[in-house]
Computed example of a mutant assay.
Amino acid sequence: MSVAASPAPSLGDHLCENGFGCIEILPSTNDAHGGVIVDLKDPMDPQVFASLLKSSLLQWKKQGKDGVWIKLPIELVNLVEVAVKEGFCYHHAEPSYIMLVYWIPKTGCTIPPNASHRVSIGAIVLNNKKELLVVQEKRGRFHGIGVWKLPTGVVDAGEEIFEAAIREVKEETGIDTEFVEVLGFSQAHNSFFGKSDLTFLCMLRPLSFDIKRQELEIEAAQWMPFEEYAVQPFNQKHEPFKCIIELCIAKMERTYTGFCPRPISSFFSKDLNYVYLNSKDLHKSS
């Protein structure tokens, strides 16, 4: 017995048993983990949706399905209450849709939780004069305390770490750069609405030098002598910033090797992904 996607979701799918008693259910596709995905796009009356949802859950239970995902575009937000009354709960939301989920079996739920981490970068850009590219921000925790800091920012969905580092430096300072390597990363919990932060400290090589700061978020930007950056009282008081200083010194003394991106292909996807590794020592071992 199979459930096919319908070209007219508002009418539902018709599931027939032994040629008799066709039952109208919501259009769905099977996921890779024994569940189903309902991706509604067209308007639907809440009462019609409620009826289809009830009959669908009964059929999916008979079929031995596990998780049920319902993706509702923001235009169909009026259907959320109906689904919640049937036992669905929120899983996650994006600007254009909300995802609801329901676990059918009475056994323990194995549906993975929503993404637990936000990924961000910090960019170390050193020029040949041993000057560090630094900024002061107009908003956030560093605003108004006189601290010169590294350009930082959040990695966008579908964006590589090295791409985000290059983009953030360009956006905040107008400086073009070439990505060199990831020097390290840190994890902080309960950082953003209960989520954890993964921050990758990246080394980049400047390709231009004339600063054009971003007016919206950046108060000031400059090339600062590294020694001047390092002795800022704020940096001396806080351990994470001491680590940044130590890494910068190690790179300038050529005693530290970070992780460079290597493109790799996958059996599961046609898109290239990247693994970050110490290629210098890897080549030595081979």
Results as ranks from 00 to 15, higher is better:
P105W: 11
P113F: 08
L133Y: 05
H143I: 06
C89M: 12
T110Y: 06
N114G: 15
S116L: 15
N127L: 01
G146A: 03
K129T: 01
N78R: 06
I104H: 09
N114I: 10
R139D: 08
I121H: 12
L126S: 02
L126C: 06
G122A: 12
A93Y: 11
R141D: 05
G146D: 03
V135A: 01
V77W: 14
K149R: 08
V147I: 07
N128R: 08
V77N: 15
A115P: 14
G146Y: 03
K149G: 04
H91F: 10
W103V: 14
L132S: 01
Y90V: 08
L150M: 08
V80R: 14
L133K: 02
M99C: 10
I111A: 04
H91G: 05
L132R: 00
L79Q: 04
I104Y: 12
G146H: 03
Q136K: 14
L76E: 07
E86W: 10
M99Y: 14
V101I: 13
L76V: 03
K138L: 10
I145R: 11
S116A: 15
Y97M: 08
E131K: 10
K85V: 04
Q136G: 01
R139E: 11
W148H: 04
Q136L: 02
L150V: 05
M99A: 11
V119D: 12
H117M: 06
N127M: 01
K106I: 10
V147S: 05
I104L: 15
K129F: 04
I145Q: 06
V125W: 05
W148T: 00
L126I: 13
V82M: 09
V125R: 04
E94R: 15
K138H: 01
R118T: 08
G122L: 07
A115N: 15
I121S: 07
C109F: 04
Y97P: 00
V119L: 08
H143S: 14
G108Y: 07
A115K: 15
A93I: 07
W103R: 07
S96H: 12
N114S: 15
H117V: 08
V82L: 09
E94M: 14
V134W: 00
Y90K: 10
K130C: 05
N127Q: 05
N128D: 12
I98P: 03
T110H: 11
G87T: 09
F88G: 02
P95W: 11
G108K: 13
A93K: 14
I121R: 04
E131F: 02
V84R: 15
E131L: 02
A83V: 00
F142A: 04
V84Y: 13
I124K: 13
N128W: 01
G140D: 07
L133M: 07
N78C: 05
Y102Q: 14
K130G: 01
A115V: 14
R118G: 06
I121L: 13
A123S: 12
I98F: 09
I121D: 06
V135T: 03
F142D: 02
G87F: 15
